[in-house]
């Protein structure tokens, strides 16, 4: 469903990606791991059009995003990016809920404005999403009245309200206190079990092992190894994978 071909990306002089290739099938769950600064976030952000890239292409179903070198893309490029965003939802490490809106308003804003759903229909859908994550009682709370875990679950609900065909999670639990990690992972797990096409960047190795169909290991802007959780965790081939895993699993 998502294909990344020969992706090149630089930040100024500093070249990060020198030709990344990855194909994600419908319903597949891909987990990206790797040391800090290896390019996991940047990879996800390129797919969602939040970063422009120098060379290569990204295909989502029939939609194509070609290399965009310009600092300011034209109307045509912007429209392509927007269409991809409508198919692919994204959840951020910092939640990024809108602080001036209630939980309900956060969720119904985009369906109403972007998809022209009526307020009633959007609210009904929002409440059923909140029911699924056990936050029905917080409909009219503001983000700063919620715990981090609750905020991240609302952020997931907000992305799901757009009925995406795939979801990107960029370290969804890294900003959370340890006791809240579980509740967020449970929501993601539920989603994965329903067959959502998913790419997750995470440092939660246990979780990666549990939900991944394939694990992708990043290091210094390269994909050093791709494999099933068993292959990667039990029997890593690349030297850099071994170094990385030995470092994180020791802690």
């Amino acid at each position: 469903m998502i294909a990344v071909r020969d992706l090149h990306k630089a930040f100024g002089e500093q070249q990060l990606f020198r030709g990344i290739n990855l194909k994600i099938n419908k319903g597949e769950v891909v987990v990206c791991i790797g040391p800090s600064g290896s390019g996991k976030s940047t990879f996800l952000r390129c797919i969602n059009g939040l970063e422009y890239f120098g060379k290569g292409e990204i295909l989502v179903d029939s939609l194509e995003l070609h290399s965009i070198k310009r600092v300011r893309p034209d109307k045509h490029d912007l429209e392509a990016i927007r269409r991809i965003r409508l198919k692919v939802g994204m959840v951020f490490q910092q939640f990024n809920l809108f602080p001036h809106m209630t939980v309900l308003e956060n969720i119904i804003e985009a369906p109403m404005r972007v998809l022209n759903v009526s307020k009633e229909a959007a609210s009904e859908q929002a409440i059923s999403l909140l029911r699924r994550i056990n936050l029905e009682s917080k409909v009219s709370s503001y983000p700063d009245q919620l715990s981090g875990g609750e905020q991240q679950r609302v952020a997931i609900a907000r992305a799901l309200a757009m009925k995406p065909e795939a979801m990107l999670f960029d370290e969804p639990t890294s900003s959370l206190d340890p006791e809240m990690v579980g509740e967020v992972l449970a929501v993601i797990k539920g989603l994965v079990n329903e067959g959502m096409t998913t790419i997750i960047a995470t440092h939660e190795m246990g979780f990666a092992r549990e939900v991944a169909d394939r694990v992708v290991v990043f290091d210094k802007g390269e994909i050093v190894e791709i494999g099933t959780p068993e292959e990667i965790f039990a029997n890593p081939k690349a030297e850099r994978t071994k170094t990385f895993l030995s470092r994180v699993l020791k802690i």
Binding site: G49, L50, R82, R85, G89, N96, F98, A110, R113, L115
Partner: peptide, 30 residues
């Protein structure tokens, strides 16, 4: 206003104009 606010709005399919109107400017005004 944190950059993440604009990015979250864009990732929900809003246009830049919509994101400005509904998310960034109301907070900036406050």
């Amino acid at each position: 206003i944190p950059k993440g606010q604009m990015e979250a709005a864009l990732s929900l399919g809003m246009t830049q104009r919509m994101a400005l109107q509904r998310v960034v400017l109301p907070q900036a005004f406050r």
